[in-house]
Design a protein around this nucleic acid. Structure first.
Length: 620
DNA sequence: GCGGATCAC
DNA sequence: TATGGTGATCCGC
């Protein structure tokens, strides 16, 4: 409802964006933005958001963070003006073709609607805070938050003051001076999460961990075999979790993951909600549902949709003809599924998802000295080496990320001649990118630095454990659901999955061979690893950290040389031609036999995709 | 393929 | 006094 003064006052004359906006309008959108991303999640109705927003605004005003938010807000406002202009333009055209195309898509989606599954989303209530309260019961009755600097979560007492996860600590203290902040203890939470997972596995052995404190289950089969309603089963599950772990969870029950996720928030904390699995009920539910409640629609997309008159999922249909033009095809498909209340019905273990990158980053006190920055890069590289060894990956693409003291973010990436894992290599190849950024951005001062590798290659010993972890089949595939009685000890392997794995293995082997070769080649001509190269210039010479050759130190020469060295490709081309575009094979992708369910393959980010699959995360 | 942005937790 | 870290996706170029 009229969250944005902008949309209310947007009696925008056709074609042109509204004239200059008053400062108060701008501040309204900014204030709303500053409320943070988790606005809809918290169980904090009854909180005077107006007041909270005012306090946050005043606490933040003038800071570099605030200034950056202001810039981002302005640029989003501009973007929205363009969207409105584009929309006005489109409305003058004949959109009947687009409209029919949209209707065809709706019909296609409608055919794929599956209301046969009982999907449950389990969400721990204020998880970290609840675990801390177990150890320190005296915290149970006072406002308390977990995390220093930024709150990762807080208990419900704190939420009554407007505190939320993601909020800066000092802002939270302004809202609630008596707030008690306790430090994170991640291993403790992991252990507790595992206790919960043990219970969940009894209800669905193929449940999906969405994160530390969230999971999806398919209870179709459990309800069937135990002759229970979904409500009864979930009620019992929650009771069992509570007895065995002393933690409360909330649950949503619906026909698919998207709906279940929304439902788990409705009676939170310590409650459950079931959305009946019939089409009219689902359509009614979506009709009144604010867009922001949908997983995948965040602050920005919410504002963009609001601007063109879409506040609830029901509003989407009326705008179907130009959504694709305004936001892209993926967003169009995603939104149409929101309108229809569709979502994923297949639940699978998180391990079935394939990791695509490994990275690390850290924030520090503002820093500008090149030497200190290099040292920082070195430590980030070492950190990443640890992560890569732990997860058993090497990376073929290396990305550096920096955040300036102004909170502006830049990323750069390059492809080393072979997949890398060692800190020395990570450092050697990322340093030139950092050096180049330092030249591009005079007086560069950073508050964050990060490294990430993508196009990763598993370093797991071939043969071992490859298919060692087959799992009992669950009841989540519609096609196979009924036919099983008890599958004690029975393993089902999808033939195509087996094939894919074999193919992947083969390609991995090839990769490893190639990389071994290339590493050997590299070692020969290069000098005995002078990786601390990059020694700053002496006089007017500069040493390239890649090829270790001295260059004139003027910017032009250095940049040209760095460009050359960065784009130098040796083995890379050879590797590319022997491997399919993506080294890893997409996992089974479940949609097996069905003719062609309107599936894409998108994940998170901007939802944009159709059935927004849930994430993969590191399980326990 | 690269870089910027958005999103979730 | 000082606003996080990890991973994924999408878009425009």
């Amino acid at each position: 409802m009229g969250v944005f003064a902008q949309s209310g006052s947007s009696a925008a004359p056709l074609g042109r964006p509204p004239p200059t906006r008053t400062p108060s309008n701008e501040h309204d959108t900014l204030k709303y933005h500053l409320l943070g991303p988790s606005l809809t999640k918290a169980g904090q109705d009854s909180v005077d958001q107006q007041k909270v927003s005012e306090i946050i605004y005043n606490a933040s005003k003038g800071s570099k963070f605030f200034n950056n938010e202001e810039v981002k807000d302005k640029s989003l406002t501009e973007k929205i003006h363009k969207i409105l202009a584009r929309k006005a333009e489109l409305e003058n055209l004949d959109l009947s073709t687009e409209r029919r195309r949209a209707d065809d898509y709706v019909a296609e989606l409608e055919l794929s609607r599956d209301l046969s599954q009982v999907v449950v989303h389990i969400d721990c209530d204020a998880f970290y805070a609840a675990v801390e309260e177990l150890d320190r019961p005296e915290l149970r009755d006072v406002p308390m938050a977990v995390g220093k600097g930024v709150l990762t979560t807080c208990n419900y007492h704190a939420r009554k003051f407007g505190c939320r996860s993601g909020m800066a600590g000092f802002v939270a203290m302004k809202l609630c001076p008596q707030l008690i902040c306790v430090p994170m203890n991640f291993t403790k939470y992991q252990a507790k999460a595992e206790e919960i997972r043990v219970v969940l596995a009894e209800y669905d052995p193929r449940f999906e961990s969405a994160s530390c404190d969230e999971a999806y289950l398919n209870l179709t089969r459990y309800c069937d075999e135990h002759h229970m309603t979904a409500d009864e089963a979930v009620s019992q599950l929650r009771q069992e979790v509570r007895e065995r772990t002393k933690l409360t969870v909330s649950a949503g029950i619906a026909a698919n993951a998207t709906l279940a996720k929304i439902c788990s928030n409705i009676n939170k904390p310590n409650g459950q909600f079931r959305l009946a699995s019939d089409r009219p009920t689902v359509m009614d539910f979506m009709k009144a549902l604010p867009t922001r409640k949908v997983n995948g629609i965040g602050r920005v997309f919410e504002r963009e949709l609001d601007a063109i008159g879409i506040k609830t999922c029901g509003d989407i249909y009326a705008h179907r003809a130009y959504l694709s033009r305004l936001f892209g095809q993926k967003a169009f498909q995603f939104l149409m599924q929101c309108y229809l209340g569709l979502g994923r019905t297949s639940i699978q273990p998180a391990e079935d998802y394939e990791r695509k990158s490994v990275g690390t980053e850290s924030t520090f006190r503002e820093m500008g000295s090149p030497d200190a920055l290099r040292e920082k890069l070195r430590s980030v590289a070492e950190e990443l080496e640890g992560d890569l060894k732990r997860t058993e990956f090497k990376g073929r693409t290396l990305c550096i990320k920096i955040k300036l003291h102004t909170y502006e973010v830049y990323t750069r990436q390059m492809t080393p001649p072979f997949a890398i894992q060692r800190a020395d290599d990570l450092y050697k190849h990322s340093l030139p990118m950092l050096e180049k950024l330092m030249r591009e951005i005079p007086n560069m001062k950073l508050r964050l630095m990060g490294l990430r590798v993508t196009h990763i290659v598993s370093t797991k010993k071939p043969g071992i454990d490859f298919f060692g972890q087959q799992r009992a089949t669950g009841a989540n595939k519609p096609a196979t659901i009924k036919k099983k009685t008890t599958d004690g000890g029975e393993w089902e392997v999808w033939p195509e999955a087996e094939f894919e794995e074999a193919a992947r293995q083969e390609r991995n082997d090839e990769m490893n061979e190639l990389e071994k070769l290339s590493q050997e080649q590299e070692k020969q001509p290069d000098q005995p690893d002078n990786s601390m190269a990059a020694a700053p210039n002496d006089g007017d010479k500069w040493t390239c950290p890649i090829c270790t050759l001295p260059q004139a130190s003027d910017d032009k020469t250095v940049n040209a040389h760095l460009d050359f060295c960065l784009s130098r490709q040796t083995i890379k081309e050879a590797v590319k031609s022997t491997t399919p575009s993506d080294h890893g094979t997409p996992k089974p992708q479940s949609t097996s036999t069905k003719s062609m369910p309107p599936k894409g393959k998108g994940k998170r980010g901007r939802p944009k995709t159709e059935t927004p699959d849930s994430d993969q995360k590191t399980p326990g």
